[in-house]
Computed example of a mutant assay.
Amino acid sequence: MKIYKMSPLLTRSLSGIVYVTIFLSAVLFSKFTFIALVSIFAICCIFEFHKLILFKNVMPYIVFIGLTFFLVRNPTSKIIIPILALTLLASLQLIYRLYSKTKLQSSRLAEKLDISIRYIVFSFCLLILLPYQNGEYESLILISILILIWVNDSFAFLVGKNFGKNKLFQSVSPKKTIEGFIGGVLFSIIASVIIAYKTELYSVLDWVIIALITSIIGSIGDLVESNFKRHAAVKDSGNIMPGHGGLLDRLDSLIFAIPFLYLYIHYII
C-alpha cells in the first residue's frame, strides 16, 4: 500500500490557509477572541525567541500577562508613551545590530531580558491596542494591515522568484532580492489605495503611508529575525506551522512594524 506525502507547496498552502482563517476569525468575531489569540501568539513567540537567543526566564511572560491585563482595562493610559518609545528604540538598536553584524552576548542575561521585553513583549502589547479607535475596537484597522502584509509578502515572493537578480541582504537572507522588495512595496501601495476607498477609515495618503511603513519596516523586521536565526544557526524559529516554521517566522514583519504603525495611526493621523 502506497503512502502519499503532500508536496511542500501544498503543505505550506494548507498551513497558511488555517493560520489566516484562525487569525481573521478571531479578529472579526470580537475583541476578546482577538486579545486571546494575540496573547497565545505572544507567548509562543516569546518561547521561540528565547530558544533563538539561548535564554530561559519567566519574566517576559509575567510582564506580558500583567501589562496586557492592565492595558486592556486602561487603553488610553499614559504608560503607553514610554512603552512605545522603548519599543521604537529597540527597533533602531536591532536595525543597527543588523547592519553592524553584531549579536547578543551569550553571557549578558540582562541584555537578553531587555531585548525580549522591548522587542517581543511590548510589540505584542501595542498590537493588542492598535485596532482601537476613539476607545472602540475597530477590526477593519487590523484586517487592512494584515492584508497589506500578506500582499507585500506574496508579491515580494512572486516578483523576486520570477524577476529577482540582485540580492537584498545576502549575508542574512540569501533568497530575498531587491526586485522582490520593490514589487512587494508597489503592490502594497496599490492594495492600500483600494483599502482607502473600501473602508473610508483614513485618507488615501494615510493608507499609502501605512502601506509604506508596513512593507518597508516589515521587510526589515523579517531581516532582523533572520539575523537572529543566522546567529543561532537554525532555519526556522520553530515548527508549529508545517511548511512555514514557527509563529515568530510568520509574525516577524508585523511585530517589527507595529510600533511604527501605532505611532502613525494613534499620534500622527
Rank of each mutant, 00 (worst) to 15 (best):
M6H: 12
K31V: 00
Y19C: 13
L24S: 13
S7N: 12
K31L: 00
S7V: 11
T11Y: 04
L9S: 08
T11V: 08
F29L: 14
S30A: 08
V18E: 09
S15N: 12
V18Q: 12
I22Q: 13
Y4V: 00
F34V: 02
I17A: 13
S30C: 08
I35E: 01
I17P: 07
T21G: 05
K5R: 10
F29K: 10
V20S: 07
F34M: 00
T11Q: 12
L28K: 06
T21W: 03
L9Y: 11
G16I: 03
S25G: 15
R12V: 05
S7F: 07
F34S: 05
I22S: 12
R12A: 03
P8K: 09
K2Q: 02
F29Q: 00
L24I: 15
I17Q: 09
F29E: 05
K5M: 09
P8L: 14
L10E: 03
V27M: 08
V20N: 00
I17W: 02
L28W: 06
T11F: 02
V18L: 15
S25H: 06
F32V: 05
T21S: 15
T11D: 00
I22C: 13
S7A: 11
Y4S: 02
R12E: 03
F23P: 02
Y19G: 14
S13E: 03
T21V: 15
K2M: 05
L9N: 12
F34D: 02
T33K: 01
L9T: 13
V20A: 14
Y19M: 15
S13H: 01
S15Y: 07
G16D: 08
F34A: 06
I17E: 06
K31T: 04
A26C: 15
K2R: 06
L9F: 14
F23M: 10
I17G: 09
L10P: 02
S7C: 09
R12H: 05
L24Q: 05
R12Q: 07
I3F: 08
Y19N: 12
F34L: 01
K31W: 03
I35K: 02
F32D: 12
L14Q: 08
F29P: 02
V27E: 06
F29W: 10
A26D: 04
Y19A: 14
S15A: 13
T21N: 02
L24G: 08
K5W: 07
Y19V: 15
F32N: 14
L24H: 00
P8S: 13
I3S: 11
L24E: 09
S15I: 09
L10T: 12
G16H: 07
I17H: 04
L24F: 09
K5A: 08
L14Y: 00
T33V: 06
S15D: 10
T11A: 04
K31R: 04
Y19S: 12
G16S: 11
T21D: 04
